[in-house]
């Protein structure tokens, strides 16, 4: 078992004929992902690795059952591609694209929040339930099936922590990259909730980083609702401060956002916070005993 994606998930690739879309489609197929269709406007009738390509999401949906879409589209059109997927009632939308304007992200998030869809990303490596399904660009050889859920705000650290766990014979139920942008389609709490009710996830590893207040919010949820152990690492404790200008950011965050703030909120909610990633396997093993 897993969250969000499993071996039955039928996947659409938007932007399948581009250089990156094509290459990543191959990697996803190799990882066992059930890709049923692709979309690139103007390319209907062609195939990518045997997968039929359509002009629009609507036509792909008319011809196939689709549960999830993964997007490799230019940042300038990411907003409309996400909304196209949501309008066609695709439940899970994963936007890999980097450098999407934040005003576009706010707009798509607002749209998604009013729909039944879930948006992961942008700037996410995607989601993998090892051995079952991979949606996105995560390098498959880092992951092994198991019962630890991983949520990471950083893409590369989701690989690193999973690889370290795998190396210590600790498999993962599902690994979710939240996306690194200022605004994410989905917040940590949304994914924690899914892990909390997934009976095959026994423990959650949370990789946070400085900036924003998602970890502080997550700490509150963990304290009140979480019925399984959480281990966390916050990246950026020794990172230099960004150059600041204007007061608005500081007023909104209200003292949250620093590594210290996140670590103290999580610790007081019963989360075991480690100083370095390499400490995680030992802590996980102890908690799972």
């Amino acid at each position: 078992m897993s969250i969000l994606v499993n071996k039955n998930t039928k996947v659409l690739v938007q932007g399948i004929t581009g250089k990156i879309g094509r290459a990543q489609t191959k990697y996803m197929l190799d990882a066992g992902t059930n890709i049923v269709a692709g979309v690139t406007p103007g390319k209907e009738g062609t195939k990518v690795y045997g997968i039929p390509v359509y002009d629009t999401v609507k036509e792909a949906k008319e011809n196939h059952d689709i549960d999830a879409s993964v997007l490799f589209v230019p940042a300038s059109i990411a907003r409309e591609c996400v909304i196209e997927a949501a309008k066609n009632k695709i439940k899970l939308i994963t936007l890999i694209t980097e450098h999407t304007p934040v005003h576009d992200v706010m707009e798509m998030k607002s749209y998604i929040d009013k729909s039944d869809s879930l948006l992961i990303g942008p700037t996410t490596p995607g989601i993998i339930s090892p051995g079952e399904c991979k949606i996105g660009i995560l390098p498959t050889n880092m992951f092994t099936p198991g019962s630890v859920g991983v949520i990471s705000r950083s893409g590369t650290l989701s690989y690193e922590v999973s690889a370290i766990l795998s190396d210590n014979n600790i498999g993962q139920s599902t690994v979710v990259g939240m996306g690194a942008d200022l605004v994410a389609g989905t917040n940590l709490i949304d994914i924690l909730k899914l892990f909390n009710s997934d009976k095959n996830t026994k423990l959650v590893v949370l990789i946070g980083e400085v900036g924003g207040s998602q970890e502080e919010d997550a700490a509150e949820y963990i304290k009140n609702e979480m019925n399984k152990p959480v281990v966390a690492y916050i990246a950026g404790g020794s990172a230099p401060d960004g150059k600041r200008m204007g007061h608005a950011g500081a007023i909104v965050e209200g003292g949250k956002g620093s590594a210290e703030s996140k670590i103290s909120h999580l610790t007081s909610s019963g989360v075991k916070v480690v100083s370095f990633l390499f400490e995680i396997p030992e802590v996980v093993k102890k908690l799972l005993q």
Partner: peptide, 9 residues
């Protein structure tokens, strides 16, 4: 970025 920050730590 995350990997960079963890490496700096």
């Amino acid at each position: 970025a995350g990997l960079g920050m963890a490496t700096m730590d």
